[in-house]
Amino acid sequence: MRRALPIIAAIGLALAGCQQPAVASEKIVEAPAATRVAKEAPGLKVAVFAGGCFWGVEGVFSHVKGVKSAVSGYHGGNAATATYRQTNTGVTGHAEAVRITYDPEIVRYDQLLQIFFSVVADPTLRNRQGPDVGPQYRAALVPLGKEQRAVASAYLKQMQASGAWKKPIVTEIESYRKFYPAEDYHQDFMARNPRHGYIVRWDKPKVAGLKSLYPEHFRSSFLRDHK
């Protein structure tokens, strides 16, 4: 049985992070299919994506067929400051990120990139996503291994040349550093808090976009395994 959201944590959620005033809705942009297809050997693979508030990033990937695990956490800083309260100061170097484990025989890394930039992250925004502002909300790709890095690099160049976005692509590739899982109350946040104002306003439309654009990749049930 999952524990209830701690009172102190609840107060923190109300005051900082993933809670900024509402602004104009994020746009769903159908990103191009990758011309550089990932060549991945059989067996589960791991990748890290930073794309603003991790509730929505995890929420979308938890609805993707072939994703076996989605963990919200912090990437880019050190262990001492890998907490929600400290990360949201914007000075720790961390980005809110999600570590996913996926089966490339069901969904390849390049397909995950297409989904990510179509319905999760706006690649033209620097140090912000949606209503959330600060370096902790930067969009970044964190490939694990040479193949993922090659695919990510090629895809960013393809996106820039595609004309799908009117502004320059500013999302960058970051070298992998240790990933620190976020506090328990952040895991499966969308599934556990379906009526939360931020989820309704910002993240459910992303899942709807996934279902609309990529029905072949959409899983109606929410993956709750975040080990």
Rank of each mutant, 00 (worst) to 15 (best):
V107S: 01
V200G: 03
G66L: 05
P135H: 06
L213G: 07
P6Q: 14
A38L: 06
V133L: 09
I8D: 13
K45V: 05
V170L: 05
V29D: 08
K157C: 01
L125W: 06
P135K: 07
Y102K: 03
S62I: 06
T81L: 10
D132R: 02
H217M: 05
H94Y: 11
L223T: 05
Y109G: 01
V120Q: 04
S175K: 00
E147H: 07
P104T: 02
F116R: 01
V170F: 02
I115E: 01
A97F: 04
N78P: 02
L213S: 10
R108F: 06
A161C: 01
L156V: 03
I169C: 08
R126Q: 13
Q187R: 10
M190N: 03
E172L: 00
H94G: 07
P181N: 12
A22N: 08
P131S: 06
V37P: 02
E40N: 03
R2W: 08
V64M: 02
V142W: 00
K204L: 15
C18S: 13
F189N: 04
H94S: 11
I106Y: 01
E172N: 02
G76I: 02
C18I: 13
S118V: 03
E174R: 00
A10P: 04
A208M: 04
G51Q: 08
R99D: 03
Q19S: 11
S220D: 10
R192H: 03
E174Y: 00
Q86M: 09
V71M: 11
E26F: 11
P21D: 13
P104G: 01
R177A: 07
I199N: 10
S153G: 11
D110P: 04
P181L: 12
A22L: 11
L15H: 04
G51L: 12
T87E: 09
K65I: 09
G59Q: 06
P32R: 11
I28W: 04
H226Q: 14
K167A: 14
H226N: 15
G73R: 06
V120C: 07
V142K: 00
K204I: 14
A161E: 08
R2H: 12
P42I: 07
H75F: 11
A10D: 10
I173M: 00
G145I: 03
L156P: 01
N88E: 12
A4C: 06
R219K: 15
A14F: 09
H186M: 12
R3L: 12
P32K: 10
I100L: 15
D122T: 06
E26K: 14
F179S: 04
E183G: 02
R3P: 09
A97W: 04
V37L: 14
